[in-house]
């Protein structure tokens, strides 16, 4: 393996600025990941031709793929930079910001819309209060495991990036938010307000936008069972629709 790591990074000084490409050549070390490359550039900000530049701007916190912050497009695929190991990425590495969200600077994008979508589906358990009211409801371990598989979603946006239906025309809230609706509706307490969430996902930009392309589930780093969740939600909304119609 070559002892140089080559990176091409798409840079953009601000939301309105024109994007440009910069190349970097770094000395290869054992166990590098994309984060340690970007850190090396911070410590010595010169490009591949030896010209001084500014450090590349990117987001990261946990560096162990639980916070979702460092998501970017690496060699054409949306994923986390912290788990992108250099030795597995081939001869040259291309870094770009996520394409479905507005760029703030360089590799940083604004994913606020995902948090806003969680408001739309009333993404919380409506507890009476945080004072001590004794134990919660019992739950079979099997149901708990399904809930857990959904609640590991770290709002990273990989599934949004992969989904063809997430685009300016559809207004689609996207697979992650739909799966969260399923999560809250699966909880013994959340179930009591399930119809509110069903109504929300039946509205504009909701579940009907999903074309069942299945790209999302393949893109999810946390193996959230997105398509299983969406299929279940489809059945629930259909049933809810019929029930509404019958009791009209």
């Amino acid at each position: 393996m070559s002892d140089t790591v080559r990176l091409r990074i798409r840079r953009q000084d601000g939301p309105e600025a024109r994007a440009r490409w910069e190349s970097f050549a770094l000395r290869r070390k054992p166990h590098m990941n994309v984060i340690s490359c970007l850190q090396a550039i911070q410590a010595d900000p010169v490009d591949a031709d030896g010209r001084a530049t500014t450090p590349v701007v990117w987001d990261c916190n946990c560096l162990e793929e639980v916070c979702g912050a460092c998501t970017m497009v690496i060699n054409g695929r949306a994923r986390q930079a912290c788990t992108a190991l250099v030795d597995e990425l081939g001869a040259s590495i291309t870094l770009e910001p996520l394409g479905k969200f507005p760029v703030v600077r360089d590799l940083v994008v604004d994913r606020q819309v995902m948090f806003e979508n969680l408001k739309r589906i009333k993404g919380w358990i409506p507890i009476d209060g945080t004072y001590d009211l004794g134990p919660g409801p019992r739950l079979p371990e099997r149901e708990r495991q399904f809930a857990y598989s959904l609640s590991r979603c770290m709002t990273c946006g990989c599934c949004m990036e992969a989904c063809p239906q997430v685009n300016p025309r559809t207004n689609f809230i996207g697979p992650a938010t739909l799966a969260q609706a399923v999560y809250f509706n699966a909880s013994p307490t959340g179930r009591m307000t399930a119809s509110e969430r069903l109504e929300a996902v039946m509205g504009d930009g909701g579940i009907t936008e999903c074309g069942n392309a299945q790209n999302c589930v393949k893109a999810c780093p946390k193996e959230v069972p997105l398509t299983t969740a969406i299929a279940g939600l489809n059945r629930a909304t259909t049933w809810h629709y019929v029930k509404n119609w019958l009791t009209r």
Binding site: I125, L133, P135, R138, L139, E141, R144, F184, S187
Partner: peptide, 18 residues
């Protein structure tokens, strides 16, 4: 108990307890 009520998927025993 509070976090259990808020929906945290804590692992369960056979009886469905925490």
């Amino acid at each position: 108990y509070l976090f259990d009520r808020m929906g945290v998927p804590f692992n369960r025993t056979a009886e469905g307890l925490l």
